[in-house]
Design a protein around this nucleic acid. Structure first.
Length: 768
RNA sequence: GCCCGGGUGGUGGAAUGGUAUACACGAAGGACUUAAAAUCCUUUGCCUUAUCGGCUUGUGGGUUCGAAUCCCACCUCGGGCACCA
């Protein structure tokens, strides 16, 4: 009988279902994939790599007796469906439903063992009711606030963006150059959690790389605030990490957006120059602004250095960020690369205060030109200077910015707030506040979303005073729904609570989370923030949502490029499944290379795993239950490899076993043990061939794993010359006697033996 | 510029101080076949006609009885951050 993968895979996919018991007497294992945004083009072979790995672990854990929660859902708010609606007029709801159906069918074909009864969808009002609920709780606690400030603005998507969504000055979604726009927006106070988000990284079993990226993103710096008095009586505060260089300050520089600039304009000798400069910088995108350092003095204004009373000029410059620190700096050209460039360009004073090297020197050294601090090490001078001067105080700064949370687009969760002239901002507690139908999806570009055009939705009565009021028309960003979805899988149909506390205690945290590393500072940081907030208000019982994280490497196209529809280099899993079967595809994706590294796809590789399964299919069964050392060594190896995410070597060790059995045949009992090893990787064929109905993970025999003979490598002067099979446990003298009698060894050993290095059961090295 | 991670046959890769190139693909030769496909067998790092042997894990140095593996310098590829004071 031939191996008919189509028949077998259909049969077992119809037969198997994987619902998880809510039995708290059994140990649980929560194994989660980052849920996808279902795009219109469907999956390519790169997508399922992570899903296959999580499926292997889920099946393996079930076999070990765990109650495995392994759900799947859909992250369906966002721009692609909305842009498609703008182009075609088809409602995003319809597009999303089609795409979800397509993705689901593709995942099912792969034989992935999801708990489908727990499926969720972020655009379902029963789901986003709770996204809105969390927002309202944040609003109550003052963590969601309204502000009008220049923020990152994508002129192509016509919406504001969070810092995390700007990549190298470009919009993360569409690649357009990001500009600044002054609009009203809702902001979440993620900075309140900066320290906890930083410190709790230590609790996590995550790739060091991702943790480091989050640390850098949070960007905690220790230093000092310094208060400079101006000659007009006003004050400017700056942040510095180098209070030890205070005697070298030759300039005070403000960002063009600094509030002081506006207020001193009339006092300046060069008012028109400054106005021209402000106008010029305002019209530039971030990228243009970063091209060259420029600045202009505020003539007539000077500041007094608090450590030595020295008068220094005040400038504005384009390289000073308004969003970091206080939007102003003390400039020390001798010990800062940027300040040095700037001072050279405008021929400004440079004073060396730390000795140690060519300027600009940014390292440690002894202080010079620093009055009574001369000769002190710069590392010690920091604290001494802070202690000495009242206007210099210890301070900490973060790169992390609060999260700009409103989008001027249609396809997102409505922000459940009402603006009342009398009562101010009033929460809409009648949730879900559903997204209304709209005729025109086109973003307005005015700072309002298309929802603003729907008068009957916008105009409401104030829930507090009953007077005329208007709804907030901004929507939530892409990332809102994915901030807490892992909690909803625990209790997807609960209408009274986000999640039942008992169930939450049982299933949380996620034990294993698998997904791409592109979410390192987006989803993974936002979700940790929301989780910590939910912990604070008693909704969840753990400090962190995801205990262990694994990032799958990308699967590159045959040409070494990233797979994408536009490059036309994608490979469809459907085609591969049709031709070789889901089991072969699953094996191949895991066999390709180390899970966390990116690898190039090659259709031909599938032939190898298909041949392997055909060999498995036609193994000769022989009488008697032979004690099979290789089988038990394979059980040990596969078990260890799954635990360590080394799926490629697990499969290669199974191949070695099967290559042996092709020659020798094996017993029914031994074959069933092997099929259980294969089951997590290739579930359909394994079940088809298995006779044993007990699907538990096989144990290896310690006795059978150990060989009683060993191969000893023989080196002469460190060079490998020969090897010999010997019984285990021989001592050096015994091995030496045997080895020195061998012809090959005699040939190389001439003259007296100086030294012998002996590693029991492994190696002998004779030095002559 | 700074911070991570890599560089091993024709290809994907294995080996994290002890026989480098497991496993797989591809290629070459052979068997079966009227023929082809499939399957099976053999060979397959490089140099040397072959043997004997020598060389080989990006490059150069070092530590060690012994280095792909540890240390130093450099080259190179990939990812992240990027005026964060």
């Amino acid at each position: 009988m031939n191996y008919d993968h189509k028949f077998i895979e259909k049969k077992w996919q119809e037969r198997e279902s994987f619902e998880v018991e809510e039995d708290s007497t059994k140990p649980k294992f929560y194994c989660l994939d980052m849920f996808p945004y279902p795009s219109g083009v469907g999956l390519h072979v790169g997508h399922p790599r992570g899903y296959i790995a999580s499926d292997i672990v889920s099946r393996y854990k079930r076999m070990q007796g765990f109650n495995v929660l392994h759900p799947m859902g859909w992250d369906t708010f966002g721009l692609p469906a909305e842009n498609y609606a703008i182009k075609t007029g088809v409602h995003p709801k319809i597009t999303v439903a089609e795409n979800v159906a397509k993705f689901k069918a593709q995942l099912k074909q792969l034989g992935l063992s999801y708990n489908w009864s727990r499926e969720i969808n972020t655009t379902d009002p029963n789901y986003y009711k709770w996204t809105q609920w969390i927002f309202l709780r944040m609003f109550e606690q003052g963590l969601a606030y309204e502000q009008v400030l220049p923020i990152n603005w994508c002129p192509s998507c016509k919406t504001g963006l969070a810092n995390e969504e700007v990549v190298a000055g470009k919009c993360e979604r569409c690649g357009a150059n990001v500009t600044k726009k002054n609009i009203r927006q809702w902001v979440l106070k993620i900075t309140k959690y900066a320290d906890r988000l930083l410190e709790d990284l230590d609790l996590l079993d995550w790739p060091e790389k991702i943790k480091e990226m989050q640390r850098n993103w949070i960007g905690k710096s220790y230093g000092a605030d310094v208060l400079f008095k101006l000659n007009n009586g006003k004050e400017v505060k700056v942040f510095t990490t180098r209070p030890d260089t205070l005697f070298g300050v030759t300039l005070l520089i403000l960002s063009p957006e600094h509030p002081l600039v506006e207020s001193v304009l009339s006092e300046l000798d060069n008012k028109q120059d400054v106005i021209n400069y402000l106008e010029e910088t305002k019209n530039k995108s971030d990228i243009e602004r970063m091209e060259e350092k420029t600045g202009v003095p505020l003539s007539g204004l000077f500041a007094i250095n608090p450590v030595n009373g020295k008068q220094i000029p005040v400038w504005i410059a384009n390289y000073i960020l308004s969003s970091y620190g206080y939007g102003a700096i003390m400039s020390v050209p001798a010990h800062d690369q940027r300040d040095y460039e700037f001072a050279k360009k405008y021929d400004l004073e440079i004073i060396e205060v730390v000795s140690g090297g060519e300027l600009p020197y940014t390292g440690e050294g002894n202080l010079v030109n620093s009055g009574s601090f001369n000769g002190i090490k710069s590392s010690e001078a920091k604290d001494k200077i802070i202690k000495e001067f009242d206007s210099v105080t210890k301070s900490i700064n973060y790169k992390l910015r609060d999260w700009v949370f409103s989008r001027q687009r249609y396809w997102g969760e409505p922000i459940p707030l009402i603006h009342c002239e009398k009562c101010g901002i009033v929460p809409e507690e009648n949730i879900p506040l559903e997204l209304p139908e709209v005729e025109n999806y086109q973003p307005t570009g005015t700072g309002e979303s298309p929802l603003a055009a729907i008068k009957e939705w916008v105009n409401v009565k104030c829930p507090k005073c009953g007077g005329d009021a208007k709804r907030e028309t901004n929507t939530m960003p892409q990332w809102a729904g994915s901030c807490w979805y892992y909690l909803r899988f625990i209790d997807p149909d609960n209408d009274n609570a986000l999640v039942d506390p008992q169930k939450e205690k049982y299933f949380q945290p996620v034990d294993l989370y698998i997904g791409g590393s592109e979410h390192a500072v987006l989803h993974l940081l936002y979700a940790r923030f929301w989780h910590k907030f939910l912990y604070d208000i008693g909704v969840v019982s753990t400090k962190e949502p995801f205990l262990k994280l694994k990032n799958q490497g990308l699967i590159m196209a045959y040409d070494g490029q990233k797979m994408s529809k536009s490059k036309g280099n994608t490979v469809s899993p459907d085609e591969m499944i049709e031709k070789y079967g889901a089991d072969s595809l699953r094996l191949y994706e895991m066999f390709l290379g180390p899970f966390e590294e990116s690898v190039a796809w090659n259709d031909n590789g599938l032939i190898g795993t298909r041949r392997f399964l055909e060999k498995v299919w036609s193994i000769n069964l022989v009488e008697g239950n032979i004690e099979d050392r290789l089988l038990h060594q394979t059980i040990k190896k596969v078990t260890k490899d799954i635990e360590e995410f080394k799926f490629n070597t697990a499969i290669s060790s199974m191949m070695i076993l099967i290559n042996e059995w092709v020659k020798t045949g094996t017993s029914r009992e031994n074959f069933d043990l092997f099929l259980k090893l294969l089951y997590p990787f290739a579930p359909h064929i394994s079940q088809e061939l298995m006779k044993d109905s007990d699907l538990s993970w096989p144990q290896f025999s310690e006795f059978l794993v150990e060989d009683d003979v060993t191969t000893i490598a023989i080196q002469v002067n460190g060079k490998f010359r020969d090897s010999v099979q010997l019984a285990k446990g021989l001592n050096q003298q015994e091995v030496e006697n045997i080895v020195l009698e061998r012809e090959k060894v005699k040939k190389w050993v001439s003259g007296s033996i100086k030294k012998v290095v002996f590693i029991p059961d492994k190696l002998i090295n004779i030095l002559v």
